[in-house]
Structure formats: C-alpha cells, structure tokens
C-alpha cells in the first residue's frame, strides 16, 4: 500500500513537473512565432492554416522595416532616453536611499512614507501637468523633455535604502576618523560597496525606460525623436519585429 501511495505522489510530482515545463515552453511560442512571421513573405503570413516555419527565409523584411521607418534613429533615441534615466535614477536613488538609511534626522520616517505614497499616484494623473510643464519649458520633442520627468524612482530609493542598511557602519567610521566629510565617505566608501544594488536598479530602470510607451508618445511629435516603442506602435504593418 505504501508503495502505491509513494508511486502516486511521485507520479503527481512528475506530472506537475512536466506541466510546468510545458507551460514554460509555451511562453516561448509567441517569441518563436514573432521570429518566424518576421521572416515570411506577405502571402505566407495570411495563409490558413498558419505556417509555422517560413518556406524561404526573407531576411530582407528587416531591411524593409529599417527603410520604411528610421528604426536606427528610434534605437538611438531609446538608448539615449534610457541611459539618461538610468544615470539620473542611480544618482537620486543612491543619495536619497543613503540619507534614509544612514542619517538620523527629524521627520525621517514620515518623509519616507511620503516618498512611498507617491508610488501610488497613477502616471496618468501627472501626465497632463507634466506635459504642460515641459511645453512651457520648450522641451517638447527633445531628449531633455523625454528624460527629465523620470529621473527619480521611489522604488529605487526604497531598494537603495534597504541595501545601505546592510552595509556595516565600521567601514564608514574608519574613514570618518581619518577626517573625511559625509559626502566623501559616501562617494569613496559606501557607493562602491553598493554596486550590486546599483546594478539591479540600473537594469530595471533601463528596461522600464525602454518599455515606456505613454510618456514618449505624448512628448515626442516628430519622427526623428520617437523611441522604439512608439515607433513600433505606430507601425502596424506586416513586419513583426523585436
């Protein structure tokens, strides 16, 4: 009897295992489909039942996409946009996170809660005023307009604060005894120690900026300033393209 129970448990586990793997593999299907469709010619795409693998590989579809729209420029814009945001968020999150983690000052916890509560504000509420503000500054359709609104990530402040709390005080104290001021201690001791957290934050900031659709859609008006996301969104063609 124990053998059957054990067998059933083992069978159940294997079944769950197989199902999970099947599910994970199915996550890939849209990506493979995207790749496959991007290499088909137009007639093949509209065939039923759908073809899973193209008859001939049409690499020139990619060239076609690049000539139809300035995707090279879009990539450059997305890259500049995301890089500016990563740099900005790293700086603001590291300094603010450091202040919340390492200093005792009046109203610190209340201020931190205030920071956190701004995470609840939907982007769409501040979208219009930010647009009007950027418009007033004359930054519509510029990199400054694209990136300036996103230079602080409260999520990043939270992350850096948690990380800095784990950095032992002793290292900083040693530098302080040697006569270094707080900013010097921050730059030379604490910041280098926080590299892993900075890497995480930088990665997420980059991905988030790259995926951002609404703000670049609103703040760019000319073809040459669009980001990749906006470019693809306005490009409802047969080229499926990642």
């Amino acid at each position: 009897m124990t053998v059957t129970v054990l067998g059933r448990v083992r069978a159940g586990k294997s079944l769950a295992w197989v199902l999970t793997f099947a599910l994970a593999a199915s996550m890939l299907v849209p990506f493979l489909w995207m790749l496959s469709t991007s290499l088909m010619d137009e007639l093949e795409v509209f065939r039923f039942p759908p073809r899973l693998v193209p008859e001939t590989l049409r690499w020139d579809n990619y060239a076609g996409a690049f000539t139809a729209r300035p995707f090279g420029r879009y990539f450059l814009n997305s890259f500049v946009f995301a890089t500016l945001i990563v740099l900005g968020q790293l700086f603001t999150a590291a300094t603010a996170g450091y202040a919340f983690a390492k200093f005792e000052f009046k109203g610190r916890d209340k201020l931190f809660m205030l920071y956190l509560s701004t995470m609840m504000v939907p982007a769409v509420v501040v979208l219009i005023p930010r647009f009007l503000l950027i418009d007033t500054l004359g930054w519509i359709d510029t990199y400054a307009g694209l990136a300036s609104t996103e230079l602080v990530s409260v999520w990043g402040v939270f992350l850096m604060r948690q990380y800095f709390r784990t950095v032992p005080r002793e290292l900083e104290d040693a530098a302080r005894i040697d006569g270094a001021g707080p900013w010097r201690v921050f730059w030379t001791i604490s910041l280098p120690l926080a590299k892993p957290a900075m890497a995480t934050l930088g990665l997420f900031a980059f991905i988030d900026a790259w995926k951002n659709l609404l703000w670049p859609l609103v703040v760019t008006t000319s073809m040459s300033m669009r980001t990749v996301e906006v470019g693809i969104a306005s490009f409802h063609g047969t080229f499926v393209f990642n």
Partner: peptide, 11 residues
C-alpha cells in the same frame, strides 16, 4: 540634519 537634507535635495 543639514547633511541629510543635502543628500535628499536632488530627489
């Protein structure tokens, strides 16, 4: 306090 606020100022 002054030092803490100088760190917080950018954000």
């Amino acid at each position: 306090n002054a030092v803490a606020w100088s760190f917080l100022a950018p954000s």
